Simulated assay, not measured.
Amino acid sequence: MLRVFALRAVVLGGAIFAILNSAAFAQDKALVARGDYLVNSLLTCGNCHTPKGPPAAVAGKDFSGGLSWDEPPFKVTAPNITPDKETGIGSWTDAQIKTALRKGLKPNGTPVAMVMPSGFYEIMTERDISAVVAYLRTLKPVKNQVPDPVYKMPQGHPIPPGGDKPFKEADLTDKVKKGFYLATIAHCMECHTPFGARGRDFDNKLGAGGAEFPGPWGKSVSRNITSSKAKGLGNWTDAEIKRAITQGISKDGSKLKPPMGFPLYAKMTADDLDAVVAYLRTVPAKE
């Protein structure tokens, strides 16, 4: 009888372990899938961190270091964020990756260049930032050493209004709040807000456009994405705004220029696009 009881206990224990292990695997898989979606759509990480060769990304080098900038504040190349332990982030802990994302600080305490929109990631829910880390862990390690950054002045950590602390999952049940969250982690206002005397003029010109972006495409100027009917999106339909975001086509049918990551935003879900448009409708008009 004792043997039978013990055998049943072992079988039951094994079954419970298998169920729990299966549930954990499913949860991990879902987390990685969420990270994949975020990294390869809203966050547009590959837009900067994947090397480009005319006209497209360099095959097999995804996320191993990408665009370079030589600007008044810095001379820097987007670093390798693959799990390579020598030239990437393979030796970083999860907490160190999260600190770099949210606070713009490397494991040694030095800041990342402020071209990295870390201030816009302060708002990320714990689930989403964990999902990004989980996905980055799955990337193929690529050995590629980029040049060390040169900082010509102290690096800032600009945080957009309302984005100074992580959202809770419950915050995302409201459509406009969700749209604000998504537009923030997509760092829309980083490019669509012009500079003032102390950096991006979030207080007076949030979303007013006017920032210039030189590149292989020539020079593009960010558009006004406020609710202004004269200068912004006030007279655009929802469908026209979505087409601009996902296809790079303006209201009048003209083609918009990079560096906005239209092909990446095209991967956004319909619900997420709806939420972003709902939020943009609420951005105060700026002329």
Rank of each mutant, 00 (worst) to 15 (best):
P158H: 09
T125F: 00
G196A: 10
P73V: 04
P51W: 00
V115K: 10
A275Q: 06
E86C: 03
D201K: 07
L38P: 00
A239E: 10
T87Y: 03
K286C: 00
A100H: 11
W92K: 07
L7G: 12
V4Y: 07
G232K: 01
V146I: 05
P158Y: 08
P141T: 00
R127H: 13
S68Y: 02
S130K: 01
G53L: 13
L20A: 12
S254G: 06
I225E: 02
A186V: 01
P141D: 00
D28W: 13
T138H: 05
A285L: 06
E240N: 11
A278I: 02
A113W: 01
A59K: 12
A239C: 01
Q27V: 11
R281C: 04
F262D: 03
S68T: 08
G179W: 01
F167G: 00
K29E: 13
G253R: 07
T125W: 01
H157N: 10
G196E: 06
A30D: 02
V10T: 08
P107E: 06
L101R: 00
K255L: 10
T237N: 09
A197H: 09
S220V: 15
T82I: 13
F63K: 10
T226I: 01
C48E: 00
G66V: 09
T99V: 12
G119P: 05
G163M: 10
V176R: 04
P55Q: 00
G35V: 14
P111S: 12
E71N: 12
N21A: 15
P149F: 05
L105E: 14
R200V: 03
Q145G: 07
A270R: 15
Y151L: 15
Y279S: 04
T93V: 07
F120M: 04
G13P: 04
T173N: 10
D174I: 13
W69E: 06
A208T: 07
L136Q: 04
I97A: 13
I159L: 03
P55L: 02
T110N: 10
S130N: 14
K177N: 14
L105Q: 14
K52A: 05
K140L: 12
L139K: 09
